[in-house]
Design a protein around this nucleic acid. Structure first.
Length: 627
DNA sequence: ATAGGGTTAG
């Protein structure tokens, strides 16, 4: 092993990847292939020039490409001047380097420059320029290159045609991309995949599936694109369905497929499938893939298995900011704010730089635990110490923090002073606080903004109606319902799901369609008797219907999470934790009931809310009733 | 030497 080398009168710092090489006897043009940093290469080159060593274009083009990567094109330019008339190989090397660098526009400049030298672009030239255009979303120059392709007789080159389709679709010129696609005499699987990916990016999942089903041949990537597309569009069930079909066809999921399907499992809380995919991933040798580990952390967190997530996180050889952020957000979601903050300071200690997402997790942790001053400090520190400009999520967290804690006036002023436009989430957080702290005036102010910002979101009207109902202002509650009807807003039906033996069972309120509905209602009846003895009083004010109290109780007892819990208790062995997922916030009455039930049946009940986790155990919940 | 898919918050 050499730590430094001195030869030929030139000091050279060894590049890390070259430390295993023996130092060469003399400084020859070949050396331009053995070193990788512009600094080393420039020194070698300077020496070669000084000793009048003759140089071929090939090593020089290598030198230029590395110089361009810096990008220090000036140096490459000097060599270019010396050469007089460099051939296309030289140009292509430089173009490639620029296209892959942080300043792809250099490639486009070069493309115009090379034509002054009477050099004819070839396939590679076009491909590198097109790559640069794609990076810059520069459709104008892309069209010019396209024109050149026609002139240069490269029009039927499949690679270039695919790049053109990609570029047009990427820049939003979907019609042009489709025209190109139709004009192509031959297409390969990549051509189809490009279109599928771009359609997914535009949110046109149906269009993407249409292409997918028309493909003559599908590769693993085609399947993966489609599966990832469904996850991206919030259709995890379809993603899993497709994944099953892919397995049926005997195709082997790769690392990217695994990431996509794990994200779907995270969305659905499908722990069984998630574990199966985890096992598959390990057997396939994907254990070291950092994307997979990160997604696994998120999957375990969202399936309610915080310990599994933590074990995985602790066992990782390398971690990125995504790993840390996912784990911190996971702890916050599970109400472990203290541990989340400890992890954050560990992260800072080892020199990992937090990003905006990390701070969303941190601020969440603070707001879930009512740590107001801590939250303020982090909010200030994020810009002061880390140069992160708060985005709407961060403002939302802060409003949530103040509102939950009852600092409604401060929350309101905070929104008014925000330097960016507020959104529904921000006012919705204030509205939520108004409900907890029974401030009708402020709630009415919030709803004024919400009916403009997010008029079709039913959740806000429901909260306001609840606030009125809880203060016995029935006419106002009725007015809100009327308002909803007028706006054509319907209450999103609440549903809960529970997975038993790998089968996902879904319940909606008052669900009698389940084959075992009879047994489920009986089970709930038994539980009800027991918790009533423990002091449970039904909280009928959460029922927003104009009916008498007895009827309200009946509605209350058919809430989807109660049905899912009763079913879970029937179908799973004693002591096994029960995991339930709900699409809305867990209802207050169910929350009170679940606490008592966890004690009576001596079971851990984990409920994933639309916001966070509630883990009921021995009569209490990890949210400490602060939610 | 040239083309397409992935994770954290909401």
């Amino acid at each position: 092993m050499i730590s430094s080398a001195y030869f030929g009168g030139v000091h050279l710092l060894p590049h890390p990847t070259n430390t295993h090489l023996r130092p060469p006897r003399s400084l020859t043009p070949d050396l331009l292939h053995s070193f990788n940093t512009p600094f080393e290469l420039k020194q070698v080159h300077a020496h070669l020039v000084k000793t009048n060593t003759s140089l071929s274009t090939l090593p020089l083009s290598r030198l230029c490409s590395v110089c361009a990567l810096t990008p220090s094109f000036a140096y490459a330019q000097r060599i270019l001047d010396r050469l007089g008339k460099p051939d296309i190989t030289f140009w292509n090397s430089c173009l490639k380097a620029f296209a892959e660098s942080d300043s792809p526009s250099g490639a486009i400049l070069l493309f115009y420059q090379l034509r002054q030298f009477d050099v004819f672009p070839d396939t590679f030239t076009c491909s590198f320029v097109l790559k640069a255009c794609a990076q810059l979303s520069d459709i104008l120059n892309g069209r010019i290159v396209h024109g050149y392709m026609e002139k240069l007789g490269l029009r039927s080159n499949l690679f270039l045609q695919n790049m053109i389709v990609h570029l047009y679709a990427l820049c939003g010129a979907l019609d042009d991309a489709l025209l190109m696609f139709e004009k192509m005499l031959q297409r390969d699987v990549v051509t189809w995949n490009i279109l599928i990916n771009q359609l997914v990016k535009r949110g046109d999942i149906e269009g993407a599936f249409d292409f997918f089903s028309r493909m003559p041949v599908r590769s693993v990537r085609s399947w993966t694109s489609m599966i990832a597309g469904y996850v991206h569009c919030g259709k995890p069930k379809e993603a899993i369905h497709l994944f099953m079909k892919m397995e049926e066809e005997g195709l082997k999921p790769n690392e990217v497929t695994v990431v996509a399907i794990l994200a779907a499992c995270a969305d659905l809380g499908a722990l069984d499938l998630g574990r199966r995919v985890h096992d598959y991933s390990n057997r396939s040798g994907f254990r070291k893939n950092i994307h997979i580990s990160n997604t696994l952390i998120d999957m375990y967190v969202k399936c309610g298995c915080l310990e599994d997530a933590r074990k995985l996180f602790d066992g990782m050889e390398e971690r990125t900011i995504v790993s840390w952020s996912a784990m911190i957000a996971g702890l916050a979601m599970h109400g472990q704010a203290g541990e989340a903050l400890r992890l954050f300071s560990n992260m800072i200690q080892i020199g990992m730089k937090p990003n905006d997402v990390t701070f969303v997790g941190i601020l969440h942790a603070c707001s879930h635990m009512g740590m107001i001053d801590m939250g303020r400090e982090f909010f200030a520190s994020m810009t002061k110490d880390y140069g992160i400009i708060p985005n709407i999520e961060h403002y939302g967290c802060m409003v949530d923090l103040f509102s939950r804690a009852g600092l409604l006036q401060e929350a309101y002023e905070f929104i008014m002073k925000m330097p960016i436009k507020s959104n529904g989430v921000v006012w919705g957080a204030l509205l939520g606080g108004c409900r907890v702290h029974k401030n009708i005036e402020m709630a009415e102010e919030a709803i004024r903004h919400l009916s403009e910002l997010d008029p079709l979101n039913d959740g806000y009207y429901v909260v306001l109606s609840n606030i009125y109902a809880e203060s016995q202002r029935w006419e106002d509650a009725a007015k809100v319902r009327k308002l909803m009807r007028e706006h054509g807003v319907k209450k999103t039906p609440g549903w809960s799901s529970i997975s038993v033996d790998g089968v996902l069972h879904e319940f909606v309120a008052g669900d009698e369609s389940h084959p075992q509905a009879e047994e489920i209602f009986q089970m709930w009846g038994k539980l009800l008797q027991k918790i009533k003895l423990k002091g449970y009083v039904p909280k009928t004010s959460v029922v927003l219907l104009e009916i008498d109290e007895n009827e309200k109780e009946k509605f209350l007892y058919r809430h989807s999470e109660k049905l899912a819990l009763a079913f879970g208790l029937m179908k799973t062995p004693s002591r096994m934790p029960i995991r339930i997922l709900k699409n809305l916030r867990v209802c207050e009455d169910c929350h009170a009931a679940f606490k008592l039930i966890s004690e009576i049946v001596d079971r851990e009940i984990v409920v994933r809310d639309r916001n966070r986790f509630h883990c009921f155990k021995n009569g209490s919940c990890t949210c400490r009733d602060y939610w």
